[in-house]
Nucleic acid binder design. Structure first.
Length: 467
RNA sequence: GUCCCCUUCGUCUAGCCUGGCCCAGGACACCGCCCUUUCACGGCGGCGACACCGGUUCAAAUCCGGUAGGGGACGCCA
C-alpha cells in the first residue's frame, strides 16, 4: 500500500452523471495503480437539497461501473461537530470573525459591484468591528490572508497562481450554524489525510481559498489535479438537454459498464493510439500526467462503437442475463422459446446496444404477425410458394442441427432447383422473422428449431397462397 | 465586468516539455469499393485539422509575444 489517498466526493443532489463518473474513475484508477486508498465521501452539507434517493442513485451508479471504494461512504452531515470545533478554533485564533451583514445587503453590494465592473468580493465591513450585536444573526467568515499570491502546481494544468486580492473572506458557517462547502472539504480532506485531490476543473477557483484554509488550520496542503469539463455537442457544459447524462440511464439504454468506462477514460486521457482498454490495462497504463488540459465533447457515436465492440467480445451467457430485463420491457418471455444463448449468439455482431439486441430478438419468441410486404412483392407468387414448399419439405427430413448444416441445406436446394441464393434466402428470412433485416437463415433455423421453422414457413405459405 | 483556464481533422486524440523523423499519426462518424443469404461484422481506400497575427531560428504544431474565440469561477450551492 502506498501513501496515496484519493477521494470522490459527490453531492447527493441528483444521480451520478457521466462527468462525475469520469472523475471517480480517474481517482479509482490512480488508487489502483499506486496501491493507494480510494475513499467515497458524500458532500451533503446542503441539507435542503441533499436526498437519500440521490445517495442511493450514486452508489448504484458506482457499483454498476465497478468503481469500488476502500473507505466510506462517509457523510459530511455526520461531521458537523467536527466542523464546529474548527470554526471555533479559527475564531479563537482571530483567523475568522462574525459577520452581521444580511444576505440582502450582500446581494445588493454584489450586484452594484458587477454593474460598476468591479470584482464582486466582500468589502470587509465586519472584518474589523469589535461589537457583537446582541442576538443578531451572523455568519462566520474566514479572514483571508492578504498580500502576495496563492499558487499551486496542478498535476494536470501546471502552475496556477492567484493574487490574494482576488480572494475575499469567504463564509465558513451559515446563519443557521451549518458549515459551508469550502470549509468542510478542507477539514475532511485533511482529516481523511487525502494526499491528492482529483476533481472537476470548476473547482480551480476554490483551490486558493482552500489552500489558505489549510494553512490557517496548520494542515498539510494536498496535491491537486483538476480534470477538464465534459461538454455537449454545442460545446456548452454537458446537461440533460444534450441527452442522457446519468450513468444509470446509459445502463437502461443497453450499454455495458465496460464500454462506458472505456469511453470515459479516453475522454481527456490517452495512451498513444490505444483505444480499447480492459480494466487491468487501464490501471496499468493510467497516468494523471497524460490527462489533457482542455474540455472535451461527449460523443455518443463513439460510445456506441465501443459498446458494440464489447457486445461482440462479450461472454454470451452474461449478455443473455443482461438482456433479460430489456426483453421483459417488451413483454417478451423466453420461456418455452429458443435458447437465449443461441439467440444472443446470432445477434452479438449486429447490435450496438442491448436495447437494439432486444428489439432484434423479439421475433424469435413471437412469430411474425405481419410480413414486410414491399420485400415480398419483389418475388412472383408462384416462386414464393415453390420456395416455401421446397424448404418445408427439406427441413422436415433433414438431419442437420446447426447453422452450418442448415446453410448447406439451403445451398443444396439452390443447386437442385437452379435458384440463386437470394431467391431463397430472402423469402425464408421474411417467413422466419417477418422482415429482411435478420441474422443468417441458417442461424435462425438453428435457434428456432426445425419444428418452429417449418411452422412459420407453412404459415407464410398459406398467407401468400390466400392472396 | 473581474479573475482563472483552454484552443491539432465534424468529434475523441497522438505529437508539443527535450524544435527538424509531421506538406501532422490513430480512432469514431461520413463516403466509396470488396466480402455476402438480407442486415450487420470484417477488409481495403477516401474525405478531413496544427484558431489568427507577429517574433526567435538554417528549421516551429512544437519556443516567445499579442489578438480572437470558447469554457469556468465570482453563492449563507457543492
Amino acid at each position: 500500500m502506498s501513501e496515496l489517498r484519493v477521494r470522490f466526493a459527490p453531492s447527493p443532489t441528483g444521480y451520478l452523471h457521466v462527468g462525475g463518473a469520469r472523475t471517480a474513475l480517474f481517482n479509482w484508477l490512480l488508487a489502483k495503480k499506486q496501491g493507494g486508498t480510494f475513499i467515497l465521501r458524500i458532500e451533503d452539507t446542503d441539507v435542503e437539497r441533499s436526498t437519500k434517493e440521490s445517495v442511493d442513485a450514486i452508489l448504484e451508479g458506482m457499483k454498476w461501473l465497478g468503481l469500488d471504494w476502500d473507505e466510506g461512504p462517509f457523510y459530511q452531515s455526520e461531521c458537523f461537530d467536527l466542523y464546529k470545533e474548527y470554526v471555533q478554533k479559527l475564531l479563537d485564533d482571530g483567523k475568522a470573525y462574525r459577520c452581521y451583514c444580511s444576505a440582502d445587503e450582500l446581494n445588493a453590494k454584489r450586484e452594484l459591484a458587477m454593474q460598476e465592473g468591479r470584482k464582486p468580493k466582500y468589502d470587509g465591513t465586519c472584518r474589523n468591528r469589535n461589537d457583537h450585536p446582541e442576538g443578531a444573526p451572523y455568519v462566520v467568515r474566514f479572514a483571508a490572508p492578504q498580500g502576495g499570491e496563492v499558487a499551486f502546481d496542478d498535476l494536470i494544468k501546471g502552475r496556477i497562481a492567484f493574487p490574494s486580492e482576488e480572494l475575499d473572506d469567504l463564509i465558513i458557517q451559515r446563519t443557521d450554524g451549518t458549515p459551508t462547502y469550502n470549509f468542510c472539504v478542507v477539514i475532511d480532506d485533511a482529516s481523511m489525510r487525502i494526499t491528492t485531490v482529483i476533481r472537476g476543473d470548476d473547482h480551480v477557483n476554490n483551490t486558493p481559498r482552500q489552500i489558505q484554509l489549510y494553512q490557517a488550520l496548520g494542515f498539510p496542503v494536498p496535491q491537486f489535479a483538476h480534470v477538464p469539463m465534459i461538454l455537449g455537442s454545442d460545446k456548452a457544459r454537458l446537461s440533460k438537454r444534450h441527452g442522457a447524462t446519468s450513468v444509470i440511464a446509459y445502463r437502461d439504454m443497453g450499454f455495458l459498464p465496460e464500454a462506458l468506462i472505456n469511453y470515459l477514460v479516453r475522454l481527456g486521457w490517452s495512451h498513444g493510439d490505444d483505444e480499447i482498454f480492459s480494466m487491468d490495462e487501464m490501471i496499468q497504463k493510467f497516468d494523471i500526467n497524460n490527462v489533457g488540459r482542455s474540455a472535451s465533447v461527449f460523443n455518443t457515436e463513439k460510445l456506441l462503437w465501443l459498446n458494440a465492440h464489447y457486445i461482440k467480445q462479450g461472454d454470451t451467457e452474461r449478455l443473455a442475463d443482461l438482456l433479460l430485463p430489456h426483453l421483459s420491457k417488451r413483454e417478451v418471455t423466453t420461456l418455452g422459446g429458443p435458447d437465449l444463448m443461441l439467440v444472443v449468439n446470432t445477434l452479438k455482431e449486429r447490435a450496438q446496444t442491448l436495447e437494439e439486441m432486444a428489439d432484434r430478438a423479439v421475433f424469435y419468441y413471437n412469430a411474425p404477425q405481419a410480413y414486410d410486404e414491399a420485400a415480398l412483392a419483389k418475388f412472383e407468387k408462384e416462386h414464393l410458394l415453390a420456395v416455401f414448399e421446397a424448404v418445408a419439405e427439406k427441413l422436415s427430413v433433414t438431419s442437420a442441427v446447426d447453422a452450418a448444416g442448415f446453410d448447406l441445406l439451403f445451398k443444396e436446394l439452390c443447386t437442385e432447383k437452379v435458384w440463386k441464393m437470394p431467391q431463397v434466402g430472402q423469402p425464408v428470412r421474411i417467413a422466419l422473422s417477418g422482415g429482411t433485416q435478420a441474422p443468417g437463415i441458417g442461424e435462425i433455423v438453428q435457434a428456432l428449431g426445425c419444428q418452429e421453422a417449418i411452422r412459420r414457413i407453412q404459415a407464410i405459405r398459406s398467407f401468400v397462397a390466400a392472396r
